[in-house]
Design a binder for these strands. Structure first.
Lengths: 371, 371
DNA sequence: CTGAAAGCGCTAACAA
DNA sequence: TTGTTAGCGCTTTCAG
């Protein structure tokens, strides 16, 4: 493995000159620069990251703190990660992802105080996030993906939930829907102060009220079962329901299952719109889901660029930016059935259908579709 | 930020003594050790990772090379990652995930030849993977998650696809199914030599033949649409089909959608079993999918332990290990309808009572865990 | 515009 | 059982 010494010798210059060619920290004549580059190429020289880090006190590593629960990463998060990695790489930095949990402060402290990270991006930010104080205390520059309750002195990029919810509601209202249920994350999640759940809740109330409509929010566990229960709940509270807006990506599938089980068609009887959802997931459903597509990749790029600016400029300007999700209309949303609707007439129970009648109902649905 | 000098001074010993206390590379008397530990605690000392890395020529960083496509990470991969991270952390190593693509050899070379990685775990291994030669050429120890075509001289951990397919087929045959379709990945993926697709194909043929049955394999695009098409195809080729085994996790949802669209019930008319699928995804479907659950976390742990052994022992023993997925029966598999007999009797499909209770219990447990 | 040399904070011989 | 010291490979003053 060639060292800078080797390169210097071969190019007939001093090590410092090689170093300056590499870092560009002081002007070098074109002739010398060429000699050095030639020598580096011939020796297939690669700077030693540890030595450089020790001498410069800069690791050139950016940490992406990405807590992973057992549910995995959605396409949204993935887009974010790849966007961030590309931006970091373009700037000559490495982006390393660390699956350290939000509460695992020991592990994070170990990582951060060993001077391994020049800066950090925090994903899954909580309203009161222990990682923020820890990292600030250690003097590690950071950018949030999401927002804490108090964003004072913090840079962040986040989804514009207000705007996203408003656009989704406008879409449904524009189609003629008046009775819309919003299926949020679970009550526990909301109580725990999960930002997106709180913000979308408030935005939904505002958007519906703005249209002179009655907001109906249902909390749902993050699972298909949760979605089924939520839908039953929704019909219990609003039998004239014609549309569902869902923040809970996991519950969406349960909602669809329960609708099919009740013999209700999508979007004929009920329209479904999924929030902050990737095209990939949207296409998984039948019919494909109309969804608010999150700006994952752009968020990642912007976050990294912001962080790099902080590293260079010392304590430069804060950057607080919100990006909305974009409406992509697919097959799951359409105009409601003409008023006086009969969607729950006949034998459809108002109470949650037990699993066994679900089968029968599905058969009815299929039959009707063929007719 | 305290240095080792500071600790040494404060403890009244030499720097090397402090170093040896930390690394355990030579015996230190209990008295001295205590003094040093006390000094470290008082100064809140943390070793500088760069300095340590430079001096020891060991970064104590393990790279997890994890190509990310736009589809995101499944729960299986997530379990793998967390299992690996836990094992690394327990050994005093950092596990950094790098989203570098398989073909992005430049970026990988940069990462590896800067001596930033002590070793690497490769995910999404292809039969002929360019990363393997690159890393071996650079002298970076590695462990594969999956297998190349030629595993000579390589350590790997992988899923035991033979065993997994056999167990799945046995489950269905045991229920009485004779006509089973296997929905694999796409023809392009198979042609491209994707290991799991090839191995499961061969295993399926072997398993079916072993039961004296006719193997029917269908290739499907990795999407709901692909699944729907595959199911139509399957019924075209085998109208008497009673069970579907699916390797293609994305297609599964299309299969279920198409079955519902045809008015066929699951598992009453057709049983569905999903391969290499996490409980989380299995629960997304209605009914929840009987699936072969992948041993993600165990694979991650074993892979890291293997890699660490390679670092210590120099070029120690190779480790090649296969772990099977475990059958978890949920609601989507049951006995086939009695042959010839029709039996849309009463209120639903025959479904083993145990499965139903089991499923309910699991859902309760999951809910509880989340609360 | 370029070179010489003093570290960066730690590890690991070599000595005692 | 402990101390002394020469680097690890690079950055960055300080001189020219």
């Amino acid at each position: 493995m060639a060292t800078m010494q080797d390169v210097a010798r071969r190019a007939g210059v001093s090590v410092s000159t090689v170093s300056y060619v590499l870092t560009g920290a002081r002007p070098i004549s074109q002739a010398t620069r060429d000699k050095v580059h030639a020598a580096m190429a011939e020796l297939d020289y690669q700077p030693n990251a540890m030595a450089r880090g020790l001498a410069s006190r800069r690791s050139r590593i950016l940490g992406l703190l990405m807590p992973m629960d057992e549910r995995g990463l959605g396409a949204t998060e993935t887009a974010f990660v790849t966007g961030a990695a590309a931006a970091a790489s373009a700037a000559g930095y490495h982006l390393v992802l660390s699956p350290i949990g939000v509460e695992n402060t020991d592990e994070l402290r170990r990582l951060a105080s060993q001077r391994m990270l020049d800066g950090a991006l925090l994903m899954e930010v909580q309203l009161d996030d222990p990682r923020v104080d820890l990292l600030r205390g250690l003097g590690v520059p950071l950018v949030l993906i999401g927002r804490t309750a108090d964003t004072n002195g913090l840079s962040y990029v986040d989804i514009d939930f207000d705007r996203t919810v408003r656009d989704a509601v406008d879409h449904l209202v524009g189609l003629g829907h008046r009775r819309i249920a919003y299926v949020n994350h679970s009550a526990a999640t909301i109580a725990h102060g999960y930002g997106p759940a709180l913000r979308t809740r408030d935005a939904f109330v505002a958007a519906m009220t703005g249209h002179g409509l009655d907001p109906l929010m249902i909390a749902a566990e993050d699972s298909a079962a949760g979605g089924r229960a939520a839908l039953s709940d929704a019909f219990g509270r609003a039998p004239d329901l014609t549309a569902v807006l869902a923040m809970n990506e996991n519950a969406v599938f349960g909602i669809l299952g329960e609708l099919a089980g009740r013999g209700l068609s999508v979007p004929g009887d009920v329209s479904v719109v999924s929030m902050v959802t990737s095209p990939q997931v949207a296409e998984l459903a039948t019919p494909a889901l109309t969804a608010m597509t999150s700006p994952g990749s752009a968020l990642g790029r912007i976050a990294v660029e912001t962080l790099l600016r902080h590293l260079d400029g010392g304590s430069g300007e804060l950057h607080q930016q919100l990006l909305p999700c974009v409406l992509e209309v697919r097959g799951s949303s359409g105009p409601p059935r003409a008023a006086g609707g009969d969607s729950t007439t006949g034998d459809g129970p108002a109470r949650p259908a037990p699993a066994r009648t679900e089968e029968a109902a599905r058969r009815r649905a299929a039959t009707r579709r063929r007719a």
